[in-house]
Each structure stands twice: as structure tokens, then as C-alpha cells.
């Protein structure tokens, strides 16, 4: 599992983004987190070379949601051989935008006193779910009707053992809000909303049938290409 706090948003474990063999001894692992409305790139920098590393700086290529460092990369002391440091880099979403394929691909350049290195990573889209993503109920109903059926995408969330209340709480900790809940013929229907940092709203219907560990998630969004990523976020959140 991850290192997310029970009531906070989910944070995946760090993975290696840049192996030492490709960066003259600099190994970078990382993950993304969202805390108190702020997005962070959590980095571990490990010096596997035989010389000291200094003068670190980081830059992002333009990306789908305008993610950019909100401050310089703070590595205050030289990184000595075999030393690892943890750095939390604050990000904002006001950088240059260019739709990437896959959508959440981020190309990063990092430099030190030795050279400049490049790597790509994927950020989980739930980092971009904002705190004020609970849609007004009347607007939800109107928007649900207004978005054409062709824009509705259905997914199965398999082998989930949470009840409707646990699902609601877990999703709310990750800025997915339940706008309404109905029980029809024994099954729970949760109507939910979330908003991305770029203002795109996603409406969801999550259907939980008694005795069925597979839930049906229906997503409606004016930008249907985000649906697959939002489904991925539901799966990650509900299974961790």
C-alpha cells in the first residue's frame, strides 16, 4: 500500500524515474502528493557516483495541465557519494499547456554540476482534483442531462468490498464528492462530482449492488479523454 494518511489523499509509493546508469550516477525516485490544496513532487535524489553533486535545478516541459515548479529545487548542501536526500518540490498549474499522450505524461529536465538529464513520469490525475469540486445539486442535474449520452463512459471497478458510506468517505478524502445518494431496488446509486485544476468538471454515477463486489462507474464529462484517467483514480483510491 501507499503512505497516505487514513483521512488524507492517497499517495503512491515512490518509483524510480531516472536510474543511475542513465544519469552519470544520479538516481531519482519520486511520487506526487496533494496536501492542503497544494501539489508536490516528492523526490529522492541519490548520489551513486564517486564525486560530489551540486547546483541542482529542475524544469518541466509543457504538459496537459500546465504543471510547473512553483519554487526552485531546494538542495541546500552538496550531495556526497552514497548520500540520498528527500526533496518536496511545490508545483502549480499555471505553466504552459500542451496536450500530451498519454494525458498525464510529464517530461522533466534536471541538471547538476555534472550534466543535464531528462526523464518522463506519469502523474496520477487525482493530484488535480480540487477541494471545491462539490457541484451544486441543481447544477449537477442540469449538467447530467445536458452532457450527451455519447459522452458517457462506463467502467467496472472489480473486487471492491467497501459499503456506500466507506466509499463516500474515502473518495471525499480525495476530493471526489457525493452530491446525492439513492437506493433503488436495494442498490446504492451515488451521484458524485469532481473538478480538475483547469476547471473541467466530471460527473459520476457509482452503482453498488448488494452481493456484487463489482461496482459500475458511469462518467460524464465534456472532455471524455479524461474519463479513463478518472476511472484509474477511482480504482487506486478505493483499493488502497
Amino acid at each position: 500500500g501507499g503512505v497516505g494518511m487514513p483521512t488524507g489523499s492517497y499517495v503512491a509509493p515512490k518509483s524510480v524515474w531516472l536510474p543511475a546508469a542513465k544519469a552519470k550516477g544520479l538516481e531519482i525516485s519520486g511520487t506526487f502528493s496533494r496536501r492542503m490544496g497544494h501539489i508536490y513532487m516528492e523526490l529522492s535524489l541519490m548520489n551513486k557516483a564517486m564525486q560530489v553533486m551540486t547546483d541542482f535545478a529542475i524544469q518541466f516541459n509543457r504538459n496537459s495541465f500546465g504543471l510547473a515548479p512553483a519554487a526552485p529545487l531546494q538542495v541546500n548542501a552538496p550531495l556526497t557519494p552514497n548520500q540520498t536526500i528527500e526533496v518536496s518540490l511545490p508545483l502549480n498549474t499555471v505553466g504552459p499547456v500542451m496536450k500530451m499522450d498519454p494525458l498525464s505524461n510529464l517530461q522533466v529536465a534536471i541538471k547538476n554540476n555534472i550534466d543535464v538529464f531528462y526523464f518522463s513520469c506519469l502523474y496520477p490525475i487525482n493530484m488535480l482534483f480540487v477541494e471545491d469540486g462539490k457541484m451544486d445539486r441543481q447544477i449537477f442535474l442540469a449538467t447530467w442531462k445536458d452532457i450527451p449520452n455519447e459522452n458517457e463512459v462506463q467502467f467496472q471497478i472489480k473486487e471492491c468490498h467497501l459499503n456506500a458510506d466507506a466509499v463516500t468517505n474515502k473518495l471525499q478524502s480525495n476530493n471526489i464528492y457525493t452530491v446525492a445518494k439513492r437506493n433503488v431496488e436495494g442498490q446504492d446509486m451515488l451521484y458524485q462530482s469532481l473538478k480538475l485544476t483547469n476547471g473541467i468538471w466530471v460527473l459520476a454515477e457509482l452503482r453498488i449492488q448488494p452481493g456484487n463486489i463489482n461496482y459500475t462507474l458511469s462518467l460524464k464529462c465534456r472532455a471524455p479523454e479524461v474519463a479513463q484517467h478518472v476511472f484509474g483514480a477511482y480504482e487506486t483510491i478505493l483499493k488502497n
Partner: peptide, 20 residues
């Protein structure tokens, strides 16, 4: 009263989705 209307509208939506 508007709240009641919205409650009713969500019930109708859930019903329609279950039995289209």
C-alpha cells in the same frame, strides 16, 4: 420546497437509470 424538488429529481434520475 426547492430542496424537496431536487430530492425528487435525483430519485427520478436513479429510478430511470435502474429501469431505463
Amino acid at each position: 420546497e426547492m430542496d424537496d424538488d431536487l430530492d425528487e429529481a435525483f430519485s427520478r434520475l436513479a429510478q430511470a437509470r435502474t429501469n431505463p
